[in-house]
Each structure stands twice: as structure tokens, then as C-alpha cells.
Design a binder for these strands. Sequence first.
DNA 1: GTTTATTTTAAACAGATTTTAATAATTTTG
DNA 2: CAAAATTATTAAAATCTGTTTAAAATAAAC
Lengths: 203, 203
Amino acid sequence: MDTKHGNATRLKLMETARELFIAKGVDRVGVREIASKAGVNLSLMNYYFQSKENLLEQIFEQSIKDNGQKIRQILNADMPLDQKIKTYINAYIDILTEDPLLVPFVLSIIHRNAEQASRLKAVHTLYNTETFSNQLKHEAELGNIRKVDPEQFFISMISLILFPFAIKWLIGYRMTLNKEQMAQFLEDRREHVYDLLMNSLRP
Amino acid sequence: MDTKHGNATRLKLMETARELFIAKGVDRVGVREIASKAGVNLSLMNYYFQSKENLLEQIFEQSIKDNGQKIRQILNADMPLDQKIKTYINAYIDILTEDPLLVPFVLSIIHRNAEQASRLKAVHTLYNTETFSNQLKHEAELGNIRKVDPEQFFISMISLILFPFAIKWLIGYRMTLNKEQMAQFLEDRREHVYDLLMNSLRP
DNA sequence: GTTTATTTTAAACAGATTTTAATAATTTTG
DNA sequence: CAAAATTATTAAAATCTGTTTAAAATAAAC
């Protein structure tokens, strides 16, 4: 562990803030609560991060950076289409299962200030689909799959993976699932999404 | 029109707040702005609604109530499966196109306080899928479609419809679309989603 | 060991929402 | 149709935000 001084308090603040933001929602936690839960003086908040908004941004970019590379690699890997789709779904659901509030957290940030492209840039790098698009086109030309609009298909794929995590609470309430049943539902989803996508691609 | 007294100012506040919330995002508009734009005294804000939070809740439930019935009717209508799915997609996208910030607005509220089941109840009534589920099972027994888990399929269907509206900004940024091109993309989505779902159901 | 830079602190600021308590208007009712 | 009771409106004060300031403690450099 670092010495308490300097960078350590900075990290402590980010950790604490992240937990609170995820647990309660960004605008339901005040800077005073963050500082006190982190055990540091309120002013250090603005000493290290210039504002709460900026703190949020740094936490956000951290999240993306931590998980982004895995996702990006798969999409550009040299791998048969069906295997790639399966791997992509599984890796993504792994990440979201481990950090189940990541999606609503990111969505709320996108919603918060969509006009600020800077934040979008971080997310954007996640979705370099050129290789994947070419693969879809190529397989269609070979007659192995039905012809589809690659952009639409990609958006569909991430919708199927991500959206259920955005409405997790709603699904649980709707189907009256307990924690284990909910986990099972999201587990089952791996296969369901894969089957749905692959079956839709049959020529 | 109602007399200015009583209910009229209440409604005026809700209307004004709703427009501002949708245009600027919930936490980027203050109660002063709402009150002044609505032309009423600031305190009436808290006279009619106890808090900004509660005002938000009432606007939210109103939105659901306004559009909910259409959506619900289609799902329970007596209609061939393929036609029902097509109608459902189109009706939903119609609503979301007319009110393009509805999804992020609703999602942020779900994220805001997922613990409060009261808010979920309003959304929940949207998704009475019993008729639809039975229809899926029945068609599978007849061999007309592939067998699928109805709950998973329904979640997939709404994911495909709703999620793109949640990440509209991101899609636009990613594909560098202008307003018209974005509208076209969402138009094209009607057919894409329908084809995807129906093709995936082929036996 | 004095100077310099970094980190921490307490107090105050400007902005927001919410509450209070008093006043005006409307409706109820005897 | 007045008196009472309820409902609507207002201005001012109280409370809670995020942020700033300026001074104090600590660590690093010369």
C-alpha cells in the first residue's frame, strides 16, 4: 500500500466515490459524503479533482480503460465468425456480471451530457468494428450467412448483451426473481443471445 | 382550459418541467427555472409536489401511462405472430421517435433509485406478456417456429427496440451521422429488427 | 537548516432546494 | 349570503449543495 500522502488519498477518493456512485446514483451522493466515507478532508476533493463532474469523468474513463481492451481484441481477432460472436458475448457478460451496475452507470453518463464528445471518445474506442463488418460481408458473399447490414447487426448484438443489464431491476421485479434466479437468467442469456444471432444469420 | 387556479398551475408545472428535463437532462435544470418558465411562484413547486424528486416521479408515471396502453394492447391482441411482432416494433419506434429522449429519461430514473419498487410498478404494467408467451409456445408446438424461451425472447425484442435509443448520441458520433442520417438509421431499424427476430425463429 | 513545493485543514462563499409562516382567493355550509 | 374552512399564493428564511480561499502542516530540495 502507498503512503497515505499524495496519490493514495487520490485513489481512496476515486474508489469511495465509485462505490457510492454505483450504489446510489451519481446525483444522490454529495461530495461531503464521499470525503467523509473516504476519511479525508472535504477540500481535497477539489484539490485533486477540480470538480465533482471531473471526478466522475475520471472514474468513468478508468472503467472503460480497465475493460475496454478485452472487448476490442475479440472483435478484431482472427477467428471464425460463430466462435467470435460466442466469445464476444461471453466476455462481455463476464465483465457485466462482475460489475453489474456498469451499464446503468455509463448510460446515465451518456445521458447526463451527450453534448460533450470527449466522454464519448472513450466509449467509442470500444467499438472498432471494421474487421467484424468485413467478416460479415465476406461470409455473406461466400453464401455462408444471410446478407445483413453490418452496422445494424453490430448494434443489435450489443443491444442484446447490454440492455438486460440496464433493466436488471425491472426484470427481477417483473419475473419476481431472487438473486440466484436473476444470476441464472443472465447466465442463460449467453446461449439465448448466441442462438438468436446465429439462427438469424442462417442463409 | 382550466381556471388558472389549482390544477391548472399544477399541470403547467409538470408540462414545463417535462420539456426542460427532456431537453437539458434532469439535474441540469433547477426548480427556479421551471417555476419562472411556467410563470408561477417558486414555492408552488413544493406546494404541489413535495420535492423536485417527487415532481420527476409524477412526470415519469405520466409518460408511462400515456404511451403504455398502445404497447400493452398490441402484445395482447389477437393477431398472427409475425404481424404482431411487426406492429409492436413499429408502434414502439413511433413512440420513441416522437419522444426520443424517453428511453434515457426512463433509464436514468430506473438507475436513480432502483430500490424504490413503486416506480417500477408503473413500468411493469407495460410488459404483460402472458398472451405473447403462449403464442410463442403454441406456434413452436405446431412446428411453425423454433422453440424459444418466451421470457428471453421478449427481453431480446425490447432490447433490440429500446437500446439504440439509449445510445443514440453514441451511434451518431460513431458513424458520424447528421440528424437526417440518424433518423434514417432508426427508420431502417424497423425492418432490421423484424428480419432479425423472424429469421431467428425459423424452424 | 533554510527555502520550496506539496499536501492538508478549517472557514466562508455562492448556488441550489426546501420550509415556514403569513396572506389572498376560493369553496363549503349553516 | 355571510362565516368558516379549505385551498392557493407569496416573500422571506432555513438548509443543504458544490466550490473557493487562505492559512497551516508536512515533505522534498538545495
